[in-house]
């Protein structure tokens, strides 16, 4: 639940907070974009932790952000 996630994050260092958020987000992103999941997770981890928590709670928001990230990646690789 949200309280467990928030309290776990609050007790961690900034580096560990990002790592934990990545560990939680990665499998969700991998389900949407199996081949780009590592890069997309890395991109999204540059966002504020509070925004990342919202993405964890909202599959629709996460799906939208993943689509955005894919578009940026493709633009960079073009």
């Amino acid at each position: 639940g949200r309280c467990l996630i928030a309290s776990t994050l609050a007790s961690a260092s900034p580096e560990d907070q990002k790592k934990m958020l990545g560990e939680w987000l990665f499998p969700l992103i991998q389900a949407l974009q199996p081949t780009l999941a590592s890069k997309i997770t890395g991109m999204l981890l540059e966002m504020d932790n509070s925004e990342l928590l919202l993405l964890l709670e909202s599959p629709e928001s996460l799906c939208y952000k993943v689509d955005e990230a894919v578009a940026v990646l493709e633009a960079c690789q073009a």
């Binding site: 990002k18 790592k19 560990e23 499998p27 590592s38 890395g42 981890l45 540059e46 990646l73 960079c76």
Partner: peptide, 22 residues
């Protein structure tokens, strides 16, 4: 430019080093 190594890739179980690049 310096965007060749961007974005930093996240791999489960590996310490996250993305903050070093900001």
């Amino acid at each position: 430019g310096s965007s060749i190594n961007w974005p930093p890739e996240f791999h489960p179980g590996v310490p996250w080093k993305g903050l070093q690049n900001i």
